[in-house]
Design a protein around this nucleic acid. Structure first.
Length: 376
DNA sequence: ATGTAC
């Protein structure tokens, strides 16, 4: 008999479709337990914000962005004027040049020999953000991490780009949503994607540090929230759920609100996991439709916390509007209330890079494309 | 979230 537990308070609204998806996963052969995080929301087939324990390995429960995660890097900047720094970000939609010194941080290590997309951020909810440590709730723990109020850090949320997608597709083309026929082979490829994702975050952080006149540094936190690990003799699948057993994790807010560094201490019932972010409150299509009625592009590019969002794609800007996400404070309160995590400090955005402002990216005429469709 | 197909 399998179980589903959702770690959210009554005050936290969770879409019923997402809970339905948890029960659908729980009904799969081999699945013993599904833990829903407070940022639980519906995904493509499987819920996002869930840890799923099973004796059978299901690649689709991890999804295509194997190795996606969030890392935090120290960056030695004192004065940080968002408008000035925004213009100095490198183009993270394209790989670094062959001679770029940022490559040095990889020491020639290119997992799976996959160079395509290495050093690029991708789309969707991915971002590279310069942020300032705001409220410090656990000074001793923050000091152990080497950060204090006012320090500038770099937060990188990205994954394995085309590599993870290729690994999942190779499986689904033959087995669809079925189990991995050769779990060992899947895990070997998966582990390379996890490593690739982490190195990708590291490379991007180096690119940005060098572009802003700072030294590349090792991450103080690097957590992967799309992966599978062998745990308690079974496969623990995480989809939008960060490893939460004695590790420090950055739980991402939105591009106009703080994020939270937390000390995670989740047990078996929570799938040894914590939330990975605020969680979507609206689908991308709803966010676009409602956002166009509610926000101007200008207010999304210059946020209530005074940060600048670099995003040459208007549709993405609306899809990723802070109002499309749940309140991060509620997610953190739910984690703390259930004993899954202790907040250490907040990070407050200064500059968030989503996608290049100008450049060679071909852009469709959204006005014509959208006219006559949907409501206004 | 992705590369690719429309």
């Amino acid at each position: 008999m399998s179980t589903v537990t959702v770690f959210a308070s009554d005050g936290s609204w969770i879409e019923s479709d997402a809970v339905d998806q948890c029960h659908q996963v729980a009904a799969l052969e081999g699945v013993s337990h599904v833990a829903g995080m407070p940022d639980l929301h519906p995904g493509k087939g499987a819920p996002i914000g869930a840890a799923m324990m099973s004796t059978v390995l299901y690649p689709f429960l991890v999804g295509s962005d194997i190795g996606c995660g969030i890392a935090v890097f120290p960056i030695g900047l004192k004065r940080a004027v968002p408008e000035k720094l925004a213009g100095r970000f490198p183009d993270l939609d394209v790989e670094p040049d062959a001679g770029d010194p940022a490559w040095d941080v990889l020491d020639g290590d290119v997992p799976a020999g996959h160079l395509e997309g290495l050093g690029t951020v991708g789309r969707g909810n991915h971002f590279v953000e310069l942020a300032r440590i705001g409220t410090v709730l656990e000074p001793d723990h923050a000091a152990r991490l080497g950060v204090a109020a006012g320090d500038v850090v770099l937060v990188v949320h990205s994954g394995s780009r085309g590599l993870g997608e290729r690994i999942l597709r190779a499986h689904t083309e033959v087995h669809g949503a079925g189990p991995a026929a050769d779990p060992g082979a899947y895990l070997a490829a998966h582990d390379e994607a996890v490593r690739w994702g982490s190195l990708n975050r590291r490379l991007m952080a180096a690119r940005v540090a060098l572009a802003l006149g700072a030294e590349p540094a090792a991450p103080i936190v690097d957590e992967c929230h799309n992966l599978v690990e062998v745990r308690d003799g079974a496969y623990l699948h995480r989809k939008g759920a960060a490893p939460g057993d004695g590790r420090d994790v950055l739980v991402a807010g939105t591009r106009g609100t703080p994020s939270y560094l937390v000390a995670a201490h989740a047990g078996a019932e929570a799938g040894y996991s914590v939330a990975h972010g605020a969680g979507r409150k609206m689908s991308r299509s709803d966010a676009l439709r409602r956002g166009r009625a509610k926000h101007t592009v200008e207010e999304l590019r210059r946020t209530p916390v005074g940060s600048v969002v670099v995003c040459g794609d208007r549709q993405l800007l609306f899809e990723e509007a802070p109002t499309a996400y749940k309140r991060i404070e509620q997610v953190i309160a739910d984690l703390a209330g259930h004993g899954l995590a202790t907040p250490i400090a907040t990070t407050v955005p200064l500059v968030t890079y989503k996608t290049a402002e100008l450049g060679p990216r071909p852009r469709r005429d959204r006005q014509d494309h959208r006219r006559g469709r949907g409501r206004s």
